[in-house]
Simulated assay, not measured.
Amino acid sequence: MSGVLAAPFPEIGERMMSAYDHLFRAQVAKRPSEVIDLGPLNLLPRPWDLATITMPALRAEVWQWLDAVAGWLNREYMWETSDLIPPCWPSHPHLVHELGVVADQRRRAGLAFTSDALEEWHRYCLPSFVERMKARCRGFCEGGHLSAPGCARNIRYEAGSAVADRKALFADDIASVGGAASSARLTQPVARPCFQLIDGMLVDTETGEIADGPDS
């Protein structure tokens, strides 16, 4: 056997580096004025969450990086065929969402000055990802990409009649809560007698009435 026995983790591009720099600035800023040039901080793209990236150039760079990471994981860590990330992974939204986090965690672990974070990634992050992937994919795409078994149910979930039924249930629930709140406001609390033991007798301190004893 020849060649590199342990390939380095894929590097990120300049646009991703800039996105991470903006996030770091937002995280450590002590005053809003220090990061006013970044715009709304809640809209900053998170490279590990592709859905937050709307800039085409950055999105393309993240796609390329994730594809490189998927190939790297298959070569460096996977042994059993069932553990391999399928070539059609971009067609699986659950893999797109999870792979971004796995890749980001590995990138961060590689930047640390100790091996602790990398050990955590090896022990928990990667094995958990592989197990979830296997549980969801179940080998369906070994011979090529197949539509999700739950596709028909997803279509039925989005159907107009199903949406209308759910909205009707939501409306009934909201109306019920509103009615219960109105009834509670209209109901007057019932005054309870306040008894105190005086000279061996229970006396209502509001009315002065003496309560009947157990032997009365």
Rank of each mutant, 00 (worst) to 15 (best):
L38V: 08
K167W: 04
P90K: 05
A70N: 08
A180V: 00
G100A: 06
H122I: 00
C151H: 14
L41K: 05
E158P: 00
V35K: 04
R15S: 09
I85S: 07
N74K: 07
E34T: 03
G13T: 10
S2N: 10
D21Q: 12
E80F: 08
M55I: 07
A135W: 01
E11R: 15
R192D: 05
L95I: 10
M78V: 10
W72L: 03
D37E: 13
F195D: 07
M1W: 09
T114P: 01
P189V: 11
L38H: 11
D212H: 06
V28Q: 10
F195T: 02
A175R: 14
G139H: 09
V28E: 12
V163H: 01
G39N: 07
D204N: 15
P90C: 05
F170H: 11
I85P: 05
A191E: 13
D83H: 14
L118P: 00
P56T: 04
G179K: 13
E98N: 12
P93L: 03
A19F: 04
E76A: 14
T114W: 04
E120W: 05
R132D: 11
E14V: 10
A57L: 13
L84D: 02
A168C: 02
L95F: 06
F113M: 11
A29C: 13
G144M: 04
Q188E: 15
A26V: 06
A109E: 05
V96C: 12
H145I: 01
H97M: 02
C141I: 07
D116V: 14
C141L: 06
R123N: 12
G160Y: 01
W72A: 06
Q105L: 14
S161T: 11
S176R: 14
V101F: 10
I210F: 02
S82K: 12
Q196I: 04
E209N: 07
P90Q: 09
C88F: 01
V96A: 04
L73D: 00
E119L: 13
G71C: 07
V177N: 01
H92G: 00
V4H: 05
E119C: 03
A117P: 01
Q64V: 05
F113L: 13
P149A: 12
H97N: 09
D67T: 12
I210E: 10
S176Y: 05
L202Y: 12
S128T: 11
D199G: 02
W48D: 13
T207S: 15
D172L: 12
A180Q: 14
A109G: 07
S18A: 15
F140G: 01
G39I: 08
L58D: 10
F113T: 13
T81C: 00
A181F: 09
L84G: 00
E206L: 11
P87W: 01
A29P: 10
T114M: 02
T54F: 12
